[in-house]
Every structure is written in structure tokens, then in C-alpha cells.
């Protein structure tokens, strides 16, 4: 075998699917760019879609006409639309998201200081729900196969439906009531040390974990009936190896799409949970900004949230393609 052939075939496992990868990367990048453009344009358009004069409604009826005019001027709202759009894009590239109307601080600065608090919440809640839900889903699937374990099946179904139906901010309120008000174990709100993370993370994680474990169970059940699992059994692998090595990756691939939705949903859910716990993150920022009509700030936070979601979705797709190379070809 020549060296060239060797390089093309041996050793390098990736070479087989390399072409699929390139095609996948191109298509996915295209998709991402389009979505990003839609997001940016929507954020830009938001201010112009508000009926009436956004600056007037932001500063209130008592503000002088002069102040309104200068603010309009400062925000560039008097320029023709295409020029405004151009400036907006320019600003984005240079990291300039405009000025907050109320605090008169650069939006980029506010967002930067608040971003970490929100990202920490969302990511730890996601990690927690996956770590809890996947083993539960797998275990319940294995125990309830082919009509076994009826009691477990019913109990699991009931619990997960109820837990999955409670909105996260309500879980937050209930948790506060139990652990802060009644038991005095954990702080009621704020971001003050590790113990203050427990309740917000829990309230974000419970619902998604319940839903995810149901999905994992269903996927696992169908995968366990697949021919290749029979093949794995015919290979006399141990139960652990069959369930974790052969069935789980396929079940998880199918659950991953949902996992992605879940994570981006969690990013959004921080808005509510942060309000419950007075958490100094992007969520409470955007709610305040909407209430006081600080539109540039709203715009900035919407952009950051949107980018976060797009990033999560892209990562999920990439992960899925690594786990299941077929998806790169099929989609």
C-alpha cells in the first residue's frame, strides 16, 4: 500500500466522513448567518415598530421637547432609516450597543457586567437537569420495558407530567417558601455566594429535567427494541455495555434536539427566575428595561439572548453530527 493510500484510508477515522463534514459545516454556517441577520434586523426594527415616538414614551410626558429632541439626536433616530441601519451594524462590529436612556451608561457595559450571572444560572441548571434526567430516563426505560414495572411506569409518568407542567417561576416561589421562609436554610434572593445559586438553579432545572427524563425514557424504549440492540445482546455484551454503550448514544442523539430546545428555553426562563430571586443578571435587566422603556438597553439584551440561543442551537447540531454522522447527510 502506498503512503498516499495509507494516509487516505488507514488510521485517520475521520477521513471517511470528511466530505459530509465539509458539506454540513457549510450549510450550518449559512443557516447561522441567516438567523443572525434576522436577529439583528429584528432588534434594529424593534424600536421603529413601536407605535408613536419611543423617546417620548420613554422619557415620559413631562419631559421637555428639547430633551426629547436631543435624545433623538443622540440615538440617531433622526437619520434616514438605511443610514441608521448602517450605523447600527457598524456599532455591532465595534461592540457599541448604544447608550441606555435611563442610566446613561453604555449598553455594552451593562450587558457585560450582567452576562456572567445569567450564563452561570442557565448552564448549571442545564448540566443539573441532564445529569439527573438521563440516568432516570434510562433506568425507568430499562425497568418498564415490554409492560414490566407498571407501578413504576405510572408513578414516573404522573410525577414527571406534574413537575413538567409547573412553570419555573412558580417552582421558584415554592422553593423560596419551603427553604427560605419556612426552613431558613437558604437565602431568599440576590447573588451572594454559593448557597444563593441553589434555589435559582433548582427552579430552572426541575421542569426541564422532568420533561427530558420522559423523552429519554421514550427514546430509550424504542432504541432498546432496535435490531442493533439485539445484535449487541447476541454479542453477549454486559447489560451495562448494551444499555450505555449501544442504546444510550442513539437515545441521546434523538433526545438532543429537545436538549437544545431545553437549553435555549432555559436561557429565556432566566428572565422569570431572576425576577423571583432578584438575581442581578440579564433577565432582571431586560424586565426592568421594558418597564421603564429603556429601548436601547432592551435591544442590547435581546441581541445577547438571541445570540446565546443561536450559539446553543449550533452547538447542539454539531454535537448531534458527531454522535450520529447520518444526520449530517440526511438533513
Amino acid at each position: 500500500m502506498s503512503a498516499l493510500e495509507n494516509a487516505a484510508s488507514g488510521g485517520d477515522f475521520l477521513s471517511a466522513g470528511a466530505r459530509h463534514w465539509v458539506r454540513f459545516a457549510l450549510r450550518r454556517t449559512g443557516q447561522l448567518l441567516v438567523s443572525l441577520w434576522v436577529l439583528i434586523t429584528a432588534a434594529f426594527a424593534m424600536i421603529h415598530l413601536i407605535p408613536g415616538d419611543p423617546v417620548r414614551s420613554s422619557l415620559g410626558l413631562t419631559a421637555s421637547q428639547e430633551l426629547v429632541e436631543t435624545t433623538r439626536q443622540n440615538l440617531g433616530l433622526n437619520d434616514p432609516l438605511p443610514l441608521q441601519y448602517w450605523h447600527f451594524l457598524q456599532g455591532l462590529v465595534t461592540g457599541d450597543l448604544g447608550m441606555s436612556i435611563t442610566s446613561r451608561l453604555p449598553v455594552a457595559e451593562i450587558v457585560a457586567t450582567r452576562f456572567a450571572a445569567t450564563a452561570q444560572l442557565a448552564l448549571s441548571a442545564f448540566a443539573l437537569s441532564v445529569v439527573v434526567a438521563v440516568p432516570i430516563g434510562v433506568a425507568v426505560a430499562v425497568r418498564t420495558r415490554q409492560g414490566r414495572g407498571r407501578v413504576l411506569d405510572l408513578g414516573f409518568a404522573g410525577t414527571s407530567v406534574v413537575l413538567g407542567s409547573i412553570p419555573d417561576f412558580l417552582i421558584g416561589v415554592i422553593l423560596v417558601w419551603i427553604f427560605s421562609v419556612s426552613l431558613h436554610l437558604l437565602p431568599v434572593g440576590g447573588r451572594t455566594g454559593l448557597s444563593s445559586y441553589i434555589l435559582p438553579v433548582l427552579s430552572l432545572a426541575v421542569g426541564p429535567a422532568a420533561i427530558l427524563s420522559r423523552i429519554v425514557r421514550v427514546e430509550m424504549l424504542s432504541v432498546l427494541e432496535a435490531d442493533y440492540v439485539r445484535t449487541a445482546r447476541a454479542k453477549r455484551l454486559s447489560a451495562t455495555r448494551i444499555h450505555l454503550g449501544h442504546a444510550l448514544p442513539n437515545a441521546v442523539t434523538a433526545s438532543l434536539t429537545l436538549g437544545g430546545l431545553m437549553l435555549s428555553g432555559m436561557v429565556a426562563a432566566t428572565v422569570l427566575v431572576e425576577t423571583v430571586f432578584a438575581w442581578p443578571g440579564l433577565g432582571s435587566t431586560i424586565v426592568q428595561a421594558i418597564l421603564v422603556k429603556d429601548y436601547p438597553l432592551v435591544q442590547g439584551v435581546v441581541l445577547v439572548y438571541g445570540c446565546g440561543v443561536l450559539l446553543v442551537n449550533t452547538l447542539v447540531d454539531v454535537a448531534m453530527t458527531i454522535l450520529d454522522p447520518r444526520s449530517a447527510v440526511i438533513r
Partner: peptide, 17 residues
């Protein structure tokens, strides 16, 4: 691809509180 709540906030800004 965007979570419902996010779209909600976006539209809430436009339609007003």
C-alpha cells in the same frame, strides 16, 4: 429556533406593556 418567552418579550416591547 428562538424560545417562546424571548419572542414574547420582543413583541411585548413593540405592543407595549
Amino acid at each position: 429556533a428562538f424560545p417562546g418567552l424571548l419572542l414574547c418579550l420582543f413583541f411585548a416591547v413593540i405592543f407595549g406593556v
